[in-house]
């Protein structure tokens, strides 16, 4: 069966203005809205579109986290994914460990493509897809805005600093999604009901034989420095005068 494996991460919703705890031990995540990382939602959408085009037969969506991450997996199932896997752990894993988990899943599911978001909007790491590709010894195509799947290869367009780069990669491969790849669909109520009956497998992290990794430790969180309050000017002439007096014009 031709399969696409998609990874999703539960994050603080991107509309939430995140605040640092007063004691510097972390950011406030209690009582805030949690959602699928926006780039991962694009990843799910892309897999579904590929399935609709006939490029694959099954979309499997996987997440790593505590039991209640099933909520986000159910959302992905309601979007149209066929089945879900939760790798359950209370620990926050660094990207290299996440990549190892996805390597195990890739070995088990033998997908033609693993699709991940280009970064998660909480830690902003942008590492997992590339690490998975390295561990799996397969091609990576990161930050993509276009994907065409052929018989045994994929053609992708990547958003790079210089413009748009086209690559050809053999399958299986790992891709990471950029913003302009697609616009994720809205989920309708009947699909939410239907998604409750779709298979969702829970695998304890230990069962995959992946140990924790404590080599990077966060020791303090702080709010960013604030810029001093600025001035308002009335028109373009005052603006030019203000710029000249600051010596920047």
């Amino acid at each position: 069966m031709k399969r696409i494996l998609v990874g999703i991460k539960r994050v603080v919703d991107y509309n939430v203005r995140v605040r640092v705890k007063p004691d510097g031990s972390g950011v406030i995540t209690e009582g805030v809205k949690l959602s699928i990382n926006p780039f991962d939602e694009i990843a799910v959408e892309e897999a579904l579109r590929q399935k609709e085009k006939g490029a694959c037969d099954e979309v499997v969506v996987a997440s790593i986290g505590p039991a209640d991450c099933q909520t986000q997996l159910r959302t992905a199932l309601a979007m149209g994914a066929d089945r879900a896997i939760l790798v359950e752990t209370a620990a926050a894993l660094p990207p290299l460990s996440v990549a190892r988990v996805f390597l195990r899943l890739a070995e088990k599911e033998t997908p033609l493509l693993v699709v991940l978001g280009k970064q998660a909007v909480d830690e902003d790491n942008s590492q997992t897809a590339q690490m998975l590709a390295a561990l799996w010894a397969r091609p990576q195509a990161t930050f993509i805005s276009k994907l065409e799947i052929g018989a045994d290869l994929a053609r992708v367009t990547r958003e790079v600093d210089a413009g748009l780069e086209m690559l050809e990669v053999d399958l299986p491969a790992v891709i990471s999604t950029d913003l302009r790849l697609n616009e994720p669909r809205y989920v309708k109520l009947p699909e939410i009901m239907k998604a409750k009956k779709k298979p969702l497998e829970v695998l304890p992290l230990d069962s995959l034989g992946i140990a924790g990794d404590l080599r990077v430790r966060a020791v303090n969180y702080a709010p960013p420095s604030q810029r001093p309050k600025g001035v308002r000017v009335a028109d373009a002439a005052e603006l030019v005068a203000a710029l000249r007096s600051r010596g920047v014009l």
């Binding site: 950011v27 902003d124 966060a218 969180y221 709010p223």
Partner: peptide, 14 residues
């Protein structure tokens, strides 16, 4: 920076 620059984290690497 993390969270789109809303927080700055200090990390120690071993």
């Amino acid at each position: 920076p993390i969270y789109a620059g809303n927080a700055i984290v200090t990390v120690e690497v071993d």
